[in-house]
Amino acid sequence: MKHTIAAVAATAVLVLAPLGVAGTASAQTRYDNCQEAFDAGVSNIQRGEPGYRLPLDRDRDGVACEADGADGGSPSASGSGSQDETVSSSGSTRPDQVTVVPEGGAETGDGSTETGAAPLVAGGLLAAFAGAFVVRRSQAGRR
């Protein structure tokens, strides 16, 4: 089935090439996802054109299956024969670049170097030395 669509689209590309890539989607064309469109040689489908569907326009900018990958899929992979690799079974509206989205944040620290007693001790020592030197100086001055 996919091959049929691809073949139809490929023929369309040949016949309608002068009209530009975006115009190659025929009236009957419906792409399940952008990878399918890319594999058929179609990209940058403008709103109002055949083949344009909101689910294929992830960034909602009026251009579906953008060649830069903004709407998902990978145009550069087209023709490599690995089209199923990047096709998301969940449709292209759900994120698919990260296959499993973790829940919540990351537990990246135990607080074991947080400001505690050590800096206070160091500060106290410094203050003590400063005080001692001041005492020395004032004694020296009196001599």
């Binding site: 990958g69 670049q97 990260v98 296959t99 990351a106 620290g109 135990d110 170097t113």
Partner: peptide, 22 residues
């Protein structure tokens, strides 16, 4: 379970701020 750095998409790297006193 996400993209590799440099690949299309958000690659994620995690690291501790501290641990075990270091």
């Amino acid at each position: 379970l996400g993209p590799t750095p440099g690949e299309l998409g958000p690659a994620v790297v995690v690291g501790h701020v501290n641990g075990d006193g270091r």
